[in-house]
Design a binder for these strands. Structure first.
Lengths: 162, 162, 162, 162
DNA sequence: TATGAATGAGGCTTCATTCAT
DNA sequence: TATGAATGAAGCCTCATTCAT
């Protein structure tokens, strides 16, 4: 808390006027960060894009986002798996998936995405991939270029296409 | 360290007979756990299996392993991303990927796996998927059955097949 | 540190608001004590006194000081010989000797003190004597009176007089 | 105690067969070291030497001894001033002074040493000087040569001569 | 006698939290 | 509202001492 106060140029005591606990602070911070990150995640997306284009946009968004904001992503994940999370957080997470689930659903309706797979599984298959890609990139110097990104997306696409 | 001692029914000082630091303890624990987990990961695998069967076995192994030993897996990941890791750990992690990379390589040579993708990317695509699946299962009660597992593996397969 | 806090009627943590370390505390304490002691050492001394009077005043001051503040003196010595001391301390100690060295030098110039002896040796000869006298007094009940003090100073004087 | 055991190539427990406490060990060590040091102190002394020669021999012995065995001397002093000492130690110290006191007494009887000074004071005057000389030499690179040593002894001699 | 693994009190330090100003 | 000095529980680690072998 001391470091937070110093970083914010306020006194320690002041924090406690706005937050009951350290846990409370962390909690509110998580929620804020979550929202900011999700927004970035959907940046530039327009429901009018062609399905594949829209999907790729989000896919790339997420990959880039995770790379550029690795610490944020990492914190969010750790926090989500920590004993701090409550049902409120989980509900929020659920709600945030919705846009992506909607896109997937749309894909199914357009006959472009396999309809024998449930949306959650499709979602997870894509999410997991770029998470790993990003982590590998950040931690171990796996290098990206346009070509590789395209190939990776194509792999994801093959996973789910009808 | 106090809690560890209590859990082990020994005195705090005793820990320091076997470990130089808290960090040392964590380190050795990580290495041990890592090995145990990796062994489970390759359980029942025989290089004589048909390629697809072998791949699926490992795929399922990992999924099951991650579900049954969620805390272990989680700890290993957190630790790996923590400031505690050193180059030794990273080298170990690299070395552990080898069997899977070998299988992937074999698949390529048999003409069963796309050869325009680098092995690491294929590896990450599969890894990421079951990581997410397992986490979802553990955290959010996503339910598995034989059918779902088969479908998920099939998705991974489609991702990489030639 | 616990005992220091208790003695000062404050909490342990409070100490660390004012001192970075135990070593830092000791350090600052040493410096403070050093200064206080040195001041007492030169008390009532005026450069206008006759040479022999001035010398005797300081001589007696030191003896009395060491007796009355035996613990201080003892601590300062132990500390000075401990691994805690740094060059800063040594420089300070050097600087503190200066007034006495100056007096000795003056004595030489007045032709009252042997000029074939270096100042440091003269200094040490006098210092060592009253150190021992004081320690003996404090530890073993060696008793002083005016006469004995006069004799002791006279001994020192004979040691150095021209 | 661990380090002592290691240094002695025995087990920790073994120490406790021969010494009740750490304090007991220290105590016996002090006594032993004391005796060894005192012996060195009187080395080569023969009561048949001329008075001045004998005194100088001891004087130089002590100076050399303190320089060559600085750690021993330092330990003995610290210990002597510590709460560990008991009356037994003090009695021993007293007894050890005897040879020197005897020499001083002899000097008086020969009319070579001032008889208006008590023996203890004479003893302390000399002791203090070479203590300081030695400490300065060890700690601060005060350099000795034959000439300086002679001068220093001469100073001591002037202090006490009849 | 000799061993050395085990003990646990005690030492230094950090940090979330409080409260008088 | 804002401050920041003060608090003290809790964390990591050391080391003199014991005891079963």
């Amino acid at each position: 808390m001391g470091k937070v106060a110093k970083q914010a140029n306020i006194a320690v005591g002041t924090i406690y006027l706005y937050f009951k606990h350290k846990e409370d602070l962390l909690n509110q911070f998580y929620l804020k960060l979550y929202q900011v990150n999700v927004d970035r995640f959907l940046e530039h997306y327009s429901p009018n894009d062609s399905f594949r284009e829209g999907l790729k946009l989000i896919w790339v968004n997420y990959l880039k986002h995770r790379i550029n904001h690795y610490k944020d992503s990492h914190f969010l994940e750790q926090y989500y798996k920590s004993p701090y999370v409550n049902d409120n957080h989980k509900r929020l997470a659920e709600q945030v998936k919705k846009p992506l689930h909607d896109i997937i659903q749309k894909g199914k309706e357009l006959g472009l995405v396999r309809s024998d797979l449930d949306n959650e599984m499709i979602f997870l298959g894509m999410l997991g991939f770029f998470r790993e890609l990003a982590d590998e990139y950040v931690g171990n110097c796996y290098i990206f270029n346009e070509d590789r990104i395209n190939k990776a997306f194509e792999m994801s696409w093959n996973m789910i296409k009808a």
